[in-house]
Structures are given as structure tokens and as C-alpha cells.
């Protein structure tokens, strides 16, 4: 996690006094971290205003201001664990663009709950991609949990329906739905997601307890579009930020939270099943400037 804003630390030492060059450099640092221009400009104008009001002029003071700014945007509420329903089964639906790491994230989440002794069923509702079911099945086998799957190209809604039936019959605690990767621009596929969500609502009388969107942390400004479009169609409750072990910049999460109010909930950062954490917005800002 530290990686995300590593570079911003340098600039404090570089500048003895605050001038236009300082602000330009700071903006550049934010943008090269994939923070959007609008967000970067907002952060900087807020900082300028506050530094004027509070008569802060040294780099050290501004560093704290930036930290405050980012903490403000991300929220200081600490980590928010996934919602767990009193009425089993709890349903998590995982959505996202192709190749962002849905299947791996599901395996990691399942492993996390398995360790807490929960009974889990995975719904293999990616009926489109070649070998998607087999990939998920491999994880289910390692974890020793049940998976419901149908034939290739069958209706994903039916897979979800069967999974919920099975979950109720076997008194499973959690159902995790894996969906096919899709571009947020594909109208038909986004409509399909709504249908999948409806299946849950019809069967349980309530929608999925969490709808989680996986975002690849190396993604640029397009991540904001992804979040916006997926939220429009299935009301995303949180983001799983994946591949944070790359030299990812992840600045996009600040933009997404600032513009769309969708928080990052989970972070994954490695190939192992244990490489998953709840995102703690409060300590994130601390860490960035430690």
C-alpha cells in the first residue's frame, strides 16, 4: 500500500519555500499517480486556500495539509468489513471488467470467510469465458467449498438461482457470485447484470448484501468510468482494488471516492490466497506520509 504515494514524499525535501513551481510539481505528482486533473486541482486549490487562511508556509505544514485533504476525501471511518446478513445466506456479487481479477478475488474472499468457519457456496455465473468455470472450480477444490455451475453459455441467472436454492437447502452462510468480465460500455451485458441481481432479489426478497466491483490498480482514468457505469447498473457498494503489488499508483481511488462516493473496501496484492485485506481509509493517509 505504501507504494501508492511514495513519490509525494520526495517533494517536501526538494522545496525550501512555496512558490508556483512547488504547486506545479505537486499537481504533477498527483496526476502521475493517476489522480484525475479535476481532483488534483480541487486538492490543490483547497490546500492553497487553507494555507492562506491558516498562515501555513513551510513544506512541512503543507504536507500535513495534503494528508488531511486526502484523508478527508477517503473518509476517516476506518475499515468497513463486508456486510453480513442476519438472514442467511449472505450474498456477495462480484462484477468488473475483463482481466481485473474477479475470480482470484472471490477465491481470496472465500478463503477469508472459510477461516472464520463459514459455509460458502460459489455461483459460477461466468458462463461465457472459456475455462472460467474450471478456474473457479480449481479454487473451490483447494478450499473445499461447494460450487454451482452450469454448461458453458447457459443463462447466468439460472446458475445464481440454483446456487441460492442450494444455499437455502444446505443452510450455507454465504453465496459469492462470480460474473463474467464485461466492458462497462456494453449495454447488453450491463443489462444482463441487472437481471442477475434481480434473480437474487426475487429469490431472497432482498438484493445482494454487497455488490463489489474489482478494479485493476494499474488502470488510469478509465477506472472512474468503470465505477460510474457499474454503479449505475447494479449499485456497487464497494471496490476491490486488485494487483496492488504492482507498482500501481492507485490515485484513481481518490478520484472515484471524491466524484462518486464509492469507497474501496478490499485490497488484494499477490498471488497467494492470503493476499487480501480490508482497506482502512483512516490509516491509509497516515501510511502514505509516514
Amino acid at each position: 500500500m505504501k507504494k501508492v504515494f511514495e513519490k509525494i514524499n520526495f517533494i517536501w525535501q526538494k522545496f525550501k519555500k512555496i512558490d508556483d513551481k512547488f504547486w506545479d510539481d505537486l499537481e504533477e505528482q498527483l496526476i502521475t499517480s493517476d489522480v484525475s486533473i479535476n481532483t488534483a486541482e480541487k486538492i490543490i486549490s483547497d490546500m492553497k486556500r487553507k494555507s492562506y487562511q491558516e498562515k501555513i508556509s513551510g513544506p512541512e505544514g503543507l504536507r500535513n495539509l495534503l494528508k488531511e485533504e486526502i484523508a478527508d476525501i477517503l473518509g476517516t471511518g476506518g475499515k468497513r468489513e463486508l456486510k453480513y446478513s442476519d438472514e442467511p445466506p449472505t450474498v456477495y456479487m462480484v462484477v468488473g471488467v475483463n482481466g481485473t481479477g474477479k475470480t482470484s478475488s472471490i477465491a481470496k474472499i472465500a478463503n477469508m470467510f472459510k477461516k472464520q468457519g463459514k459455509k460458502i457456496i460459489i455461483a459460477a455465473a461466468d458462463t461465457f469465458r472459456a475455462a472460467a468455470v474450471e478456474q473457479l472450480g480449481h479454487f473451490a477444490e483447494i478450499l473445499g467449498i461447494d460450487m454451482v455451475s452450469h454448461q458453458r453459455n447457459s443463462d447466468p441467472g439460472a446458475v445464481v438461482y440454483d446456487s441460492l436454492e442450494k444455499a437455502v437447502a444446505r443452510r450455507a452462510d454465504i453465496v459469492i457470485i462470480d460474473t463474467a468480465g464485461r466492458m462497462q460500455t456494453s449495454y447488453n451485458l450491463m443489462e444482463e447484470l441487472k437481471k442477475i441481481k434481480m434473480v437474487v432479489r426475487k429469490k431472497l426478497g432482498r438484493g445482494p448484501d454487497e455488490v463489489l466491483l474489482t478494479i485493476d490498480s494499474t488502470t488510469g482514468q478509465n477506472a472512474r468510468n468503470q465505477a460510474e457505469k457499474f454503479a449505475e447498473s447494479v449499485d456497487v457498494t464497494g471496490i476491490i482494488l486488485t494487483k496492488v503489488d504492482s507498482t500501481s499508483r492507485g490515485g484513481i481511488i481518490i478520484t472515484i471516492k471524491n466524484d462518486l462516493k464509492i469507497p474501496v473496501r478490499i485490497i488484494t496484492d499477490g498471488e497467494k490466497l492470503e493476499d487480501i485485506y480490508y482497506f482502512d481509509a483512516g490509516s491509509f493517509a497516515d501510511m502514505m506520509f509516514s
Binding site: 466492458m183 478509465n222 484513481i252
Partner: peptide, 30 residues
């Protein structure tokens, strides 16, 4: 859809295995 990191990814792979070219994917996204 890769962000600012794209050039680092490309340079590092190029330094390691000398790439002849790039295949750019997911252009059907916005």
C-alpha cells in the same frame, strides 16, 4: 486502459526481453 504506469510496464518488459511490438487490448472500452 492502463494509466500512467503504462510506459514503465512497457519499458521494463522491453528491457528484459526486447519487444518487437505491442498488442493493445480492450479498445472496445471507452
Amino acid at each position: 486502459m492502463t494509466g500512467q504506469e503504462a510506459v514503465n510496464i512497457a519499458s521494463t518488459f522491453n528491457a528484459a526481453v526486447e519487444c518487437d511490438g505491442i498488442i493493445l487490448t480492450k479498445l472496445d472500452s471507452d
